[in-house]
Nucleic acid binder design. Sequence first.
RNA 1: GGGCGGUUAGCUCAGUUGGUUAGAGCGCUACACUCACAUUGUAGAGGUCACAGGUUCGAAUCCUGUACCGCCUACCA
Length: 961
Amino acid sequence: MDMPPQYNPKETEDRWYKYWMDKGYFRADSKSGKEPFCMVIPPPNITGSLHMGHALNNTLQDILTRWKRMSGFSALWLPGTDHAGIATQNVIERELKKEGLTRQQVGREDFIKRVWKWRDSTGGTIINQLKKLGCSCDWSRTRFTMDEGLSKAVQQVFITLYNEGLIYRDTYIINWCPRCQTALSDLEAEHQEVAGHLYYVKYELIGNDIRVKVATHDAQLARQSCWAGRTTHDCITVATTRPETIFGDVAIAVNPKDKRYKNFIGKKVRVPELCGGREIPVIADDYVDIKFGTGCLKITPAHDPADFEIGRRHKLEAINVISADGKMNGEAGKYAGLDRFECRKALVEDLKNQGRLEKTEDYKYTMGSCYRCHTYVEPYLSKQWFVRMKELAKPAIKAVKDGKVRFVPKSWGKTYYLWMDNIRDWCISRQIWWGHRIPVWYCKNEKCPPVVSTSRPAKCPECGGAEFSQDEDVLDTWFSSALWPFSTLGWPDKTDDLRFFYPTTVLSTAFDIIFFWVARMIIMGMHFMKDVPFRTVYIHALVRDPEGQKMSKSRGNVVDPLGIMDVYGTDALRFTMSSLAVKGRDIYLSEERIQGYRNFMNKIWNASRFILMNLANSSIAQLSNSSIVKELSSNSTHDPLGRRTTHDELTVADRWIMSRLNQVTKEVTGHLEKYDFDKASLALYDFFWHEFCDWYLEIAKLQLSVTSGQWPADSKLQTADNEKTAHYSLLTTQHCLFRTLEQSLRLMHPFVPFITEEIWQTLKTVDSGQWSVDSESNNSMHESIMVSKWPEYNKKETDAKATAQMELVKAIVFAVRNIRSELNIHPGAKIKAIFSYTAKKPLKAIDILNSNAAYIKWLAGIEEMSVGEDLTKPRPAAVAVVKGIEIYIPLEGLIDIQKETDRIKKEIEKAGNDLKGLKARLRNKEFLKKAPEEVVTKEKDRKIETEARLGKLKENLKMLA
RNA sequence: GGGCGGUUAGCUCAGUUGGUUAGAGCGCUACACUCACAUUGUAGAGGUCACAGGUUCGAAUCCUGUACCGCCUACCA
């Protein structure tokens, strides 16, 4: 055993990860006969690298997987990546640009080759980072959305949906990214508020019989800004945020109920000459808001979704004025070629100069931007493929309503319904090259209907022609992600994995992709598998920086998990993640927090170090030879050190820690079952540090140090044979240290796999060949903590009596330590203490005090301790009262009377306040009548105790004076 | 516009079905490096639980309203 005083994660992590991989522990078996537990990883992008969101999500998934694996499940955590069509294409295009090339120049085929090459060399980065994080994924089953099998699944799904009439192609207004040059789905356009303007532009009325009397805007201003020869009565004003689309105006719409414009409906107006001077009709449509702007809405069907709808209703032409790259096209006359926003600037200036701009107002509105490159999207009219969602969504909604899919936390179900109930058709075609190409073929004869097929059709069923061209577009990456839970398990083939692991058990993800991904998976699962893709959706919070900002590269507030792991170790990061994984919406990550958990790792390390020192072979060998050990070992079964321990032989502290260990086992398991990772972590942290280390380990030092004759006479351990007593003490303590550590390690392993394995393996070296954590142990279990058994709660181990005794011991020790500290008694100084009680009320506490005197002396630094009835209080002395026991610490002149007086006064004040509240409550008849009896009893007891305490404190205060 | 969530110690957060003494970590103060750990130990200070009403014997917890903050969602130009 050679353990440095500080844990060094760097030395251990890679070593154990490799060991686990070599042993094949991550591999899941569909034929093991065990119950399945399955999770599919939310596939990260091949372009991505590990960020905190990944670190959180994958830590939680790994905790679940390792826990379930230890609990005897055939646990499959299926990893993989997605091809991230747009993002990846962007990366490769950037690379091409460095060579001075465009993708058009290299051509589709070569471009795709380059992407594959890139993905083979760098696309696996994130996978390696997940390994660094300790993820126990079954890497032999790693999938990629562009794999042959998954591509087959995508084609099959497309063709099936097409044949079912659930996929169609239509010309529609969609979100277009002018930079990525592709259509986007509604979800892929992120909305954000921008500070823009509302431009009031005047359109000339045609026909002298029309006169406008509009009182809604400033007549003076209107007149001033009128252009040559026109008056305000000759024009109609519209308010627009996008004047550059005037080139595509095909109508002015007013609300039929708007009296101001009643006479204009059916008449014509002329768009500004600058914008073509076309004559367009004034139409009536309910959509128009009378109160907004001037009440006149210009209609540009090719560049606004609402206008598009209105255009359809009124059978209006759609004039496209902006081209795919976001620049004005030929329709824009002299502005052609200008960027849409440049055009706006120039046009507004020109309109103003011509007196056509009535006014400009500041105005805030939302604009969509591309979720990949943040370029403002352009509502763009084009021919695209869509999935009809309404019908498909129905079974998916029902599945959640029926509880077949459960959201954790539950409230996310609402979010899900909200979107699903208002679901719109999904634009799935993308005008890029990297992705699953749409399996649709067009006959050279344009009149023939398209042929949907996985491969090039031999001949056209319509005209017999043999010349085909495939649809140029590829499918939305999320289309393939939607199939992930079954495509990764082998679908459409009927594989063993699919049969055994589908539906998967749980999906863990962040709320920001509930629509993008979770909902669509449920939809596809219900449609193609006729069953849900997962039974539970665990939605974790989003990791933010300490100021609550979403971490993003552009904000520059990204905390890199790899850097954190390098500095603090993977386990520290993982434990931080699980501790922070509350079921809220956000978690704030600060480095101090991580440091705190790094310290916890060090605590685990040093506790283990201490225990291992005391279990070291040398001492065991020595003991093994003793006749007492032989006697004790005779019917050993469960003891890891080959020694028998019966309940009677354990000390109070021993029984207490075993009881607590057992309790914690129950708690942690319960929390995990509820996905309360934070509570599970906290329970482990508190138990290990603040019970095991702070108390038991300190007591163990005493119990281990007992040699012949030293164990106090008031201990149960005391036997006639001093040597035997010492052995008992040593052996039982070792036993409890070992068991508590060993079981704690197993409980902590899913959270902090590396350090627990490292210690576990070292722990094995002190074993003399009888390692057995339980009777059902098998050989492979000895190899690694990873494949050991998850501890089980055992009711028999619960010892309420020992727990109560320890509580009193702790309370007394706290009281004495408080006195020591407040009166500046040096921590090293040994003191005398007198514990006095009143005989009239025989107190159980006294028994406990007597039998645990050794602990109290040891923990509170007491040299001489006397316990008795009505003992005289020495003067001067410090005083504390605990559970009716008065504690006197004689101070023999070195005491600061003033300090002790202050201290007692403080105590009196506290007790007095408590008592006031208690008395008031107990005076209340309603309380006595209506509160449950146990609450009343508790309050009464407290009152009696507080009263007594207060009395004693007051008495002592008097004696000081 | 609709929806969801939040407001508890200086900071970040817990707080289960209402039970009276509201917890933790970090930070802060004091003391201590003696044999697991200074990435430590011991002790301590610090909160009218956002506000206003209500229900109740009893409210951080349940109800109503208000204020502020955050997020999601949406075709008022």
